[in-house]
Simulated assay, not measured.
Amino acid sequence: MGKDYYDVLGITKSATVDDIKKAYRKQALRYHPDKNKSPEAEDKFKEIAEAYDILSDPKKKDVYDRFGEEGLKGGGGPTGAGAGGPGTFNYTFQGDPHAVFAEFFGGRNPFDQLFGNRGTSLTKRQDPPVVHDLQVTLEEVFSGCVKKMKISHQRLNPDRRSWRTQDKILEVEIKKGWKEGTKITFPKEGDETPTNIPADVVFVLKDKPHPVFRRDGADIIYPAKVSLRDALCGCTVRAPTLDGRTVTLTTSDIVRPGMKRRITGEGLPLAKSPGRRGDLVVEFEVKFPESLSSHDKLLSL
């Protein structure tokens, strides 16, 4: 006769799909090794998973209902074209009963909710965030980009008791104009164990030092060095931009150290309005000579 999978789940052949699910839920929770410490619990738990695997699958269930366990496993029943038998069926339960259990409950540990108030399990808490600095160039902030960051984290195996180390690539989208300190969060990408909720992984934007510019919000500061003669007589500065162009700024005023001139709209995009931009601020640095000749002193009067 073989196994009676309906009897394993405690139902009859007239059971509906919902009846089969309810029966598996009841029996799996009853015999789960984490709850049931009897010597036969592990074998019974596997048998329940096998019964559910067969009866919840319409094709397997149809063959089992007509030809029993032997027909399902290729050991009996008529075969061949038109015979209506199991045909190519040669079923053997290869699954992990803990994986079936985890899939049925959506990866959750039902004991936390169903039995937590009886003192049989602990409430899981989420680990603190795992924070990484992410350095970006001003050019990347100017244009926007996607940074691919490789992380390694622990993930539970299907039995929900052991775990493995797994590498993963997280794609961090850097939007135009984002400020230093902006946080990008990837929920629950930290280490996973049977007793915790994985931490969030958080990347915090940090400006990478630039060889030419400094940043002030959406403004870009360009230090322009001018000679003392040019500072006194007027000068023209050719200032670079982040997109590779050059803009010209001419002043006839006396340039004092630290004096600034703005070139509107040549800075970084505004984070909340990427169509608008900050300014390119030319900050003058006057190069004073170490000494002056008499002739130069007369020219400076």
Results as ranks from 00 to 15, higher is better:
Lys124Asp: 13
Cys145Met: 14
Lys150Gln: 14
Ile174Met: 12
Ile174Leu: 15
Gln27Asp: 03
Leu122Met: 07
His210Phe: 07
Tyr24Ser: 02
Phe284Trp: 07
Leu205Val: 14
Glu283His: 01
Leu55Cys: 06
Tyr91Asp: 08
Phe186Gly: 02
Gly177Asp: 07
Leu299Glu: 11
Arg261Cys: 03
Arg238Met: 13
Val146Trp: 05
Gln166Met: 11
Ser121Lys: 10
Asp57Phe: 07
Ala15Gln: 04
Pro58Met: 03
Lys26Phe: 12
Asp57Tyr: 06
Ser14Trp: 00
Val141His: 08
Glu285His: 09
Val172Ala: 06
Lys61Phe: 05
Lys179Gly: 09
Gly267Trp: 04
Val226His: 08
Leu9Phe: 03
Gly234Arg: 02
Pro33Gln: 10
Gly278Ile: 03
Lys208Trp: 04
Asp167Ala: 14
Ala28Met: 13
Leu298Trp: 09
Ile197Trp: 05
Lys188Trp: 00
Phe203Ala: 01
Phe213Pro: 07
Thr182Ala: 13
Ala102Asn: 01
Gly10Trp: 04
Asp200Gly: 06
Pro128Glu: 02
Ile221Ser: 06
Lys208Gln: 15
Gly10Val: 03
Asp167Gly: 15
Ser38Met: 02
Asp112Pro: 00
Ala49Lys: 02
Arg214Val: 04
Arg164Tyr: 09
Phe101Gly: 04
Pro194Cys: 10
Arg155Asp: 08
Ile174Lys: 07
Ser14Gln: 13
Gly82His: 12
Val136Leu: 09
Lys13Gln: 12
Met259Glu: 03
Ile48Thr: 05
Asn90His: 13
Glu103Cys: 02
Pro129Thr: 01
Gly68Lys: 05
Asn109Ser: 10
Ser152Gln: 13
Tyr64Trp: 11
Asp65Arg: 10
Arg108Glu: 13
Arg118Trp: 04
Asn117Tyr: 12
Lys22Asp: 13
Leu9Gln: 01
Gln135Met: 10
Arg118Asp: 04
Thr92Leu: 08
Glu69Trp: 04
Ser252Lys: 13
Leu114Gly: 02
